[in-house]
Amino acid sequence: MFKNCTSAFIAAAVILIEELANKVAIVTGASTGIGEEIAYLYCQSGASVFIISRRQHVLEKVAKRCLELGGRQVAVYAADMGVDEDIQAIPQVFKKHFPESLVDHLILNHKLENQIGSWRGTAENLTQLYNIINVNFYGYVKIASLMRPFLEQSAGSIGVVSSASGRSNSPYIISYSSSKHALDGFFAGWRLELEAERSNVSITYCTLGLIETENMRKEINNFRFENFNLMSAVSAKDTATAIVMATVRRYRELYFPWFETKIPLLFRYWFPVTLDKITAFLLKAKQ
């Protein structure tokens, strides 16, 4: 039943082509997975994209495919989201490639590869926490802040790609979860400020469940769980469609897949002990 609900949601996205034609989007974390699919979706609809990720050679392959799919203009920027100088240069690099264009949509999707494991309070744990917060949280805030003037000129939209782990208690990925909780707090509060100021910029906060990507499989394989096979993943392509639809239509929030992300959030407030027990069962580590 819930799979059919997801399919119905995706089927409703057919009008995206008309909504995206001639738009200009910035997509971070665009070299693989969800970000790559988001870039392709825009270009299939005749939009222009400025795609950002760390690996230049991979970005160039994605850009080539974007043009093949019908993208009006495609530009790449190889940047490390943990390096402030790289982030500060984004507005200048964008204007270099798109001197006459505004930014219609900013999709913040990048993340530092997560290392799943128990928190021991070691120096390695603390360094990992610092690095993840720097990339997954500060990186989002910095880029959104820098691009706000561009978005205000176009009455643009910001899509913040987050996770259900940023809305619930998530063992073994504490650093990653903390960065996502921080995103929720910042962007929810900033949205209220923008609304109070009657800004024309919208913020869509996307809470995602388990998504089938190469990075997800790599991370999961590094730390095996006894009951993980009871959890199902949805495709990166369907997820990209949901994110873009929600951002373009200026939804306040997206839960995708809905059942796997919205219901646990309700349980967190209504039945917190039960949710913790279910989470502990699903994420029970093999000995």
Results as ranks from 00 to 15, higher is better:
31 S>H: 05
202 S>K: 06
211 I>W: 03
187 F>I: 10
218 K>N: 12
110 H>E: 06
179 S>M: 04
200 N>C: 06
228 F>D: 02
76 V>K: 03
75 A>F: 13
22 N>T: 14
103 V>I: 15
125 N>H: 12
248 V>L: 01
112 L>Q: 15
247 T>Y: 04
265 L>C: 13
142 K>W: 04
214 E>A: 13
72 R>C: 09
24 V>L: 04
119 W>I: 09
10 I>N: 07
48 S>G: 03
29 G>F: 11
64 K>D: 13
120 R>D: 07
254 L>Q: 04
88 Q>Y: 11
57 H>L: 08
197 E>D: 14
175 S>P: 00
105 H>T: 07
244 V>Q: 02
77 Y>I: 06
254 L>K: 02
191 R>V: 06
108 L>N: 06
159 G>S: 08
27 V>D: 04
160 V>K: 01
110 H>A: 12
63 A>T: 12
164 A>Q: 08
182 A>D: 05
250 R>W: 02
275 L>W: 10
228 F>K: 04
279 T>V: 15
39 A>N: 05
125 N>Q: 04
275 L>V: 12
134 N>S: 09
196 A>T: 13
191 R>G: 00
137 F>H: 09
65 R>K: 15
226 E>V: 15
55 R>H: 14
234 V>Y: 09
26 I>H: 05
105 H>C: 05
223 F>G: 00
123 A>G: 00
152 E>S: 11
120 R>T: 09
269 Y>M: 03
1 M>T: 12
106 L>H: 07
105 H>A: 04
156 G>M: 03
214 E>T: 13
111 K>C: 07
81 M>H: 11
36 E>L: 11
68 E>P: 00
266 L>R: 04
151 L>G: 06
234 V>D: 12
